[in-house]
Amino acid sequence: MAEPLRLFILAGEASGDRLGADLVRRLGQRLPVQLSGVGGAELEAEGLASMFPMSDLAVMGWSDVLRRLPLLLWRVRQVARAIVRSRPDIVVLIDSQVFSKAVAQRVRRAGVVVPTILYVAPTVWAWRPERAPALRPLFDEVLAILPFEPAAMAGLDGPPTHFVGHPAVARFPGRPAQPERGPLLLLPGSRRGELRRHLPLMRAAVEQFRDHPRVTGFAIPTLDHLLPSLRREVAHWPAPVTLVTGEERRSAWDAAIAAFAVSGTVTLELAMTGIPMVVAYVADPHQARQYDKLGRKVTLALPSIIRGSNVVRELQLRSSAGPFDLSALSALLDDPAAIPAQLAAFAEVRALMQKGAPEAPLADVVDRVLAHAPQRLLIGS
């Protein structure tokens, strides 16, 4: 039997877990893969025995980081020691930018030379561009999921970067038609801090749109481990909310009239499916101060970032206390031109994601990872 590729992979949240599982499946079609690292249900289904629960890393915003700093520092040391001890053939660290950088720094300081790949580029093009050159000593390559990021990283003197697309393009082929009526999807995120800050906003949407003629109900697609806490949360909301997991999620997406979603990978998945949306983000106090220092609005919705124009209206807030102005959601549901315009823009986003930019065409993610594999493993693969 052929010698396996010893891959250490780390994902710190649900979107990274999906990216990692897709990568592992596709690698397994080329050669045997022996996994170690950290991940969630998707990577575990591909054979990973996670070192610890992925939820330990699922933090968002500085306030969340500070609350859990001792645990996070311990996990950094634990992951770095595991890499140093096992000397895998390749390390792939998926997103979780601060954690991934800290792990890579500790491994490099230990003098261990292991090809290390960062999967999902940091947003150096929007925030703190000086981070780009600081990544060069830590990562042999960055795999970008947005088509303009390789050029942006090169212009900022960052590590070699290739656009590898996103599995959402294939996983979400698009709905055959936009319904006239249906449930409103509420997507408050999956990390503790996200939920704490965004659930009051989602409740306000239920209150305001429970009698809207185009909204037949409300659904929160979520993860199994969040069901108990979300059931308690929505039990006393002003209208019934259905919690959906697993295969039920696809049915809910197919039926939805629109979505009210926290910024993140889910906005790309919604765009690929063809679900109109409004994007929301409630910043923690530290993030709010940093945004204010920029002196300009930061675009958060991935479809708008990819297309380079305001495809999706955004509700950016500094507090979860309310009251909330949900006029953007009203406009989406009430303006006859709003939904068709979004769907046409989403088609352009899909085309960009399928081809890449002229200077950075789409590369195969497996090819890019295997470019760093020991030659002995590639003979005959």
Rank of each mutant, 00 (worst) to 15 (best):
A2L: 12
R6S: 14
R6A: 13
L10M: 15
A14T: 05
L19M: 08
G20H: 02
A21L: 10
D22R: 00
Q29L: 14
P32W: 08
Q34S: 15
Q34I: 00
A41E: 14
S50Q: 05
F52W: 08
D56Y: 09
D56A: 10
L57T: 04
M60L: 14
G61I: 01
L66S: 09
W74E: 14
W74L: 10
V76R: 15
V79I: 12
A80N: 08
A80T: 09
R81H: 14
R81T: 13
I83C: 01
R87S: 13
R87M: 06
D89E: 08
V92M: 06
L93K: 01
L93I: 03
V98E: 14
V98W: 11
S100P: 01
A102R: 14
V103M: 07
V107T: 05
A126T: 06
R128L: 12
R128Q: 15
R128C: 00
P133I: 03
A134S: 13
E141M: 04
A144I: 10
L146K: 04
P147E: 12
F148L: 11
E149I: 06
A151K: 11
L156C: 03
L156T: 01
P160I: 06
F163K: 03
H166G: 05
R171P: 00
P173A: 09
P173I: 10
A177N: 06
A177D: 13
Q178T: 09
E194P: 04
L199D: 12
A205L: 11
T216E: 06
T216N: 06
T222H: 12
L226M: 06
E233M: 08
V234S: 10
P238M: 09
T242S: 14
G246S: 09
A252I: 09
W253C: 08
A255P: 05
A261D: 09
E269S: 00
M272C: 15
P276D: 08
V279S: 11
H286K: 00
Q287C: 09
L294W: 13
R296K: 13
P303G: 06
I306H: 00
I306E: 02
R313I: 00
P323T: 12
F324T: 02
F324D: 01
L329W: 10
P340S: 12
L343Q: 07
A345F: 10
A345I: 04
F346P: 02
A347L: 13
A347R: 15
R350H: 04
R350A: 03
A351P: 02
P358N: 08
A360W: 12
V365M: 11
R368S: 02
L377I: 07
S381Y: 03
